[in-house]
C-alpha cells in the first residue's frame, strides 16, 4: 500500500511537471489535475512493485538536500573529465587498464549512482559490477602506478571522495 502511494505521488508530480503552463490556476488548469489523479492511480497499479522495492530511505528530505549539494563537485569533476578527454583525443596518449575497486556501498541505488558518476568523471568508465560484494570494475584510461601497489586498490585515485558523498545520499 505504501509502495503504491509513493509511486502514485511520483507519477502525479511527473504529470504535473509535464503539463505545466496549461492554465491559470498557478500554471495548471483544473481538468489536467483531475486527469492527473486518474493517471497516477493507473500508473501506481501498473508499477507498484518495480519503482519502490523495500526501503523507503529516499523519503528523507535531508538526503535530497545532500543530493542537490552533490551537483557542485560533480559538475566540476565532469568539466575536468571533458578537458582530460579532449587532451587525450588530440595527443593520443593513453595507458588503459581495468582495475577493481571496493567502495563498500551496500544499496543498489548507491552503487548505481556511483557507477554513473564514475562513467561521467575523469578518465574512468564502469565496466562491470560484482553482484554480491558490490565491487566495481573500472576501465581507466590513464593508469597511475601509485594505485597499482596494494591489491585492494585505493578508490581515492579513481573516484576521489564520491563514495562518501553517495553514502550520505543513498545509505
Amino acid at each position: 500500500m505504501k509502495a503504491f502511494a509513493v509511486t502514485a505521488i511520483v507519477a502525479f508530480v511527473a504529470y504535473l511537471i509535464l503539463t505545466a503552463g496549461s492554465g491559470h490556476l498557478a500554471l495548471w488548469s483544473i481538468d489536467e489535475i483531475i486527469i492527473g489523479v486518474i493517471l497516477s492511480i493507473i500508473v501506481g497499479i501498473l508499477s507498484r512493485g518495480i519503482f519502490v522495492k523495500k526501503s523507503y530511505r529516499m523519503l528523507n528530505p535531508k538526503r535530497w538536500l545532500f543530493g542537490l549539494a552533490y551537483i557542485g563537485p560533480f559538475f566540476i569533476a565532469m568539466a575536468k573529465a571533458n578537458l582530460d578527454v579532449a587532451y587525450r583525443v588530440i595527443t593520443g596518449k593513453i595507458r588503459p587498464g581495468i582495475v577493481k575497486i571496493s567502495p563498500n556501498l551496500k544499496t543498489d541505488l548507491g552503487i548505481t549512482m556511483l557507477a554513473n558518476s564514475i562513467t561521467l568523471t575523469p578518465g574512468t568508465l564502469s565496466v562491470d559490477v560484482d553482484e554480491k560484494s558490490n565491487d566495481l570494475y573500472v576501465h581507466w584510461i590513464n593508469v597511475k602506478d601509485e594505485a597499482m601497489k596494494k591489491m585492494p586498490r585505493d578508490y581515492r585515485y579513481v573516484c576521489k571522495n564520491f563514495p562518501d558523498w553517495i553514502r550520505r545520499i543513498a545509505e
Binding site: 565532469m78 568539466a79 573529465a81 571533458n82 578527454v85 579532449a86 583525443v89 593520443g92 593513453i94 588503459p96 562513467t119 561521467l120 578518465g123 568508465l125 565496466v127 576501465h139 584510461i141
Partner: peptide
C-alpha cells in the same frame, strides 16, 4: 581516433553528455 571499444565509449559518452 581511439583504438578500441572502451576508449571510444569514453569519448562518446562523456563529451556528448557534457
Amino acid at each position: 581516433r581511439f583504438p578500441d571499444v572502451y576508449t571510444r565509449l569514453h569519448a562518446g559518452t562523456k563529451c556528448t553528455t557534457f
